[in-house]
Design a protein around this nucleic acid. Structure first.
Lengths: 202, 202
DNA sequence: TCATTAATCAACACGAAGTTTATTTTAGGA
DNA sequence: TCCTAAAATAAACTTCGTGTTGATTAATGA
């Protein structure tokens, strides 16, 4: 395993291995892929792979960590004031718009990883991210002593999974709406009941 | 590969292989499991495995198909009249209750397959099931010419993923509520907005 | 230009896959 | 109870991918 030098050969090699892995995951899913597959798709020697990564799991982890890092960076720009400002208006959170832009920029990765050939552990990572950076901001509104129609933790699981589903579907459909449109959908679906969202009531 | 005889030896062997696979999936996830692992956990000869299954994928597929068959059978008992009868009442659909009972009976399988060590393709299968047997029943209410706050297909993706998330969370938590409770949550969350479900409004 | 280091190439031991053949064990009817 | 068909075992075997090593070639950048 090499140090993270600025050697352009290293950068180029690692990039080609990453691209090859994503391409193969789209075709076969992670399970069936061998290191031999990856290197031959990348046009590199098999031995070269082991100069940079321990195994295919390691490679996937590094890519994943990079993407999660990007998400965390966006999350830092999140201003809780947005929640108040957009509360009752029919406008999307800028933060959510930025997230969808990021998904779009890395559509290849998210599409594969959140799709049927992907890694369910990544969905979990992604849900944890939403829990920490989106849902926990609402915790101040939650008082356990009050009666609630649905337990708080189940409501969180419901919302997080619903939002994940929207992202997945959007990527599956080839991103047929703009990030702005998608963020607006999020706002509406949070404020309306499913029946209202469908336009069946009120 | 053998025919589906009633030979008790076959039944016993196949059952042991299935149980061993599920146990191993809980520990390691499907990816890392070898046929050797499965047979040694089952206390069987490795060659015996190949008398019944082509490979570990085949084994998993057969288990999955059996579970999906069980779901389809429950779906047949579904009476659309229930939807009308329970529309504005605070009671669960008997159909949904029955589904949660089934998940509970096969908690081992669903917990693994829908969890972080599972198979994302199974989640897709499961979503398709919900789409066909739950969501499509609402299609008659949908008129594409009307204005709707959220596109119909995105709303479906939202609801299906949300419901899947609830099932996943329930299994993760060790089924801390009864199937009846869970079905009631479904009803409430469909009729209320997330904000109302949280008890923050009205 | 030259020292450094990445990438290639070939060889290696190892382990699991999947197959085959012979042998032992088991089920269940005569 | 005995006997036969078939399932399970055991042991070999080939094939393939893994991860490592050592020698060689090619690219980088000071």
């Amino acid at each position: 395993m090499s140090e993270n030098a600025n050697d352009p050969r290293i950068v180029r090699t690692m990039h080609m291995l990453r691209e090859a892995l994503l391409a193969l995951m789209e075709e076969q899913g992670f399970e069936r892929i061998t290191v031999k597959d990856i290197t031959s798709k990348a046009g590199l020697n098999r031995g070269t792979f082991y100069l940079h990564y321990a195994d295919k799991f390691d490679l996937l982890e590094r890519i994943t960590e990079e993407m999660m890092q990007g998400l965390r960076q966006i999350a830092q720009t999140f201003d809780p004031l947005d929640l108040v400002m957009h509360e009752s208006r029919d406008t999307p959170f800028p933060f959510t718009v930025r997230l969808f832009e990021y998904f779009g920029e890395h559509a290849r990765f998210f599409s594969v990883m959140l799709g049927p050939k992907g890694d369910p552990a990544f969905s979990v990572k992604f849900k944890e991210f939403m829990q920490v950076h989106l849902m926990d901001k609402f915790n101040e509104f939650h008082h356990s002593e009050d009666y609630v129609p649905v337990p708080w933790d189940y409501l969180m699981a419901y919302l997080i999974s619903a939002h994940l589903g929207i992202v997945q579907y959007w990527l599956e459909q080839g991103r047929d709406y703009t990030p702005w449109d998608m963020a607006l959908m999020f706002t509406r679906m949070t404020q309306l009941s499913p029946i209202q969202s469908a336009g069946l009531k009120k």
